[in-house]
Structure formats: C-alpha cells, structure tokens
C-alpha cells in the first residue's frame, strides 16, 4: 500500500517552472533514489513534501489523507522529516541545540518553563551513538567536520518516529568512510519500515541502497524504474537527456 502519493504536482517561482506535473507513489520501507542534473527541481520537490513550499498545483496524500501543509511542523506531524541540502545548521549553536532546533525540550523550574539542557544533551548523545558518529553534543557546529555536520542534520530526523525521511544530497560533502556510514544508516531506517528518499549525484550510492530510482529533468519526471531493471548507463542517459524517457 502506498504511504505517500503525489499527483500532478507542480511548482513555479514566477516564470521559473521548477517542478512540472510530477506524479509517483512511495511504499512503506522502500528506498527511492531521486536523481537529476543541477536545477532539475529535486530540492524543490522534496521541500514541498517537507512543508517548506506549498505546491502551485497538484495534490499530495499521506496514508490516503490529503496533506495540507503550511509550515514544516505540519509535515513533521504527518511523520515526514527532511535533511536539507545545505544542512540548515546554525554555526553559532551546539550540536544538541541544532538537533532540537524548533522542537526544544522543556522542564519546569518552579513556575517557569525552561529549556531542558541535560535531556537534550543526553538524547543527542544517544542518537549520535546510534549513528556511530563521533559527534559531541556540546560542540559548536563551526568547529565540526563535514561528516559531523551531516550527522547532526540526520540526527534531527531521529527525534520522532518518522515514516518518511527525505535526504537532499547527504553524501555530497563528506569522506568516503562517512558515505558508507550514511548508506548504512539509510539501510537501518529502511529495516525499521521507514521510507527514504535519497537525492544524490553519486550513481554508486543510489545503486547501492535504492530499490527504485526516479529521474527528473528540467522539472519533469522522465523515469520511475526499479533498480534491478535499470543500469547506471541508462540512468545517466536519462539525466542528461541522451535517453528521452522510459
């Protein structure tokens, strides 16, 4: 049964048609690669699913219910989490503060509701351990490596029991060892029944973990193929336009 369905979704920014009439559905527990050239509309598409943009046209359904989202929190309430391409981290804050940004944990101090630093540090540490990332909750983001930053951004998606996790180029700026870690994390999410949408430029990543690949070209969806029935050559052709459509 489909968990997330998009029907004829479009998004334009003024005259720019960033996403044009895209329809697909995602099953629970599958990993879907989303590929396309720079500017193909991948980020815009996942931002609509994450409630950052609302579609200009078309409908989205989650578990059969129409998704009506105005803000990112609405998407989270539906069990949708996103790791943004630029990671959306604040350099001047700690790892834990970034993990909990927008959903801080509170405790009571007498009559006052205050931030619960120790709970947030503790929970962040647990998530980093789970992700097998050497990231310290109290470190500032500005002193961190690319891989650690990625871990912080991914850790955000683990705060809730997300049903759909969208990852916008999580492997673009990190070391080879950490790419393998991120891919392992994606498998772990899938094993727990989470649906993962993986945007990546790296063909090996997608062919390694994905069950399906969706290709966008200039805002239009030109392919929705099972990995087993496709090949890197075919997908490359679809991305560049050498192959028109399948």
């Amino acid at each position: 049964m489909a968990i997330l369905e998009l029907a004829n979704v479009s998004k334009h920014f003024g005259a720019i048609q960033a996403v044009n009439d895209v329809s697909f559905s995602l099953e629970a527990g599958e990993v879907v690669g989303l590929m396309g050239d720079n500017g193909a509309g991948k980020s815009t598409l996942v931002k609509m699913i994450a409630g950052n943009f609302s579609p200009s046209e078309g409908t989205m359904r989650m578990d059969g219910q129409p998704l009506n989202m105005h803000r990112p929190v609405d998407a989270r309430r539906h069990g949708i989490e996103i790791v943004h391409q630029d990671l959306a981290l604040c350099n001047n804050l700690t790892a834990a503060a970034n993990v909990f940004l927008g959903r801080e944990v509170h405790r009571w101090f007498g009559p006052l509701r205050v931030l619960d630093y120790s709970r947030m540090y503790k929970r962040s540490a647990e998530i980093f351990a789970e992700l097998k990332s050497e990231t310290r909750p109290r470190d500032l983001i500005k002193s961190m490596s690319g891989g650690q930053r990625q871990a912080v951004a991914i850790a955000r998606t683990r705060l809730s029991d997300a049903k759909v996790v969208l990852m916008d180029e999580p492997t673009a700026a990190i070391s080879v060892r950490q790419v393998a870690e991120v891919l392992n994390l994606i498998r772990r999410l899938r094993d727990q029944g989470v649906t993962v949408v993986l945007i990546s430029h790296r063909m090996p990543d997608v062919f390694d973990v994905a069950d399906r690949v969706i290709v966008l070209r200039r805002g239009r969806m030109v392919a929705d193929r099972r990995i087993a029935e496709s090949s890197p050559e075919e997908v490359t052709g679809l991305i560049t336009g050498a192959i028109e459509r399948v």
Binding site: A88, L89, C90, N92, L93, A97, L101, R156
Partner: peptide
Amino acid sequence: GRHLYAIGGNESAAILTGV
C-alpha cells in the same frame, strides 16, 4: 532566546526548521 541565536546564526536554517 534560543531562537534569537538561531536567527542570527543562520536565518534560512531557522526558517527551514520551522522557527
């Protein structure tokens, strides 16, 4: 207060995370 620092640190990140 936490959100003030977040806005000053990276305003677009604050917007994206729903602040």
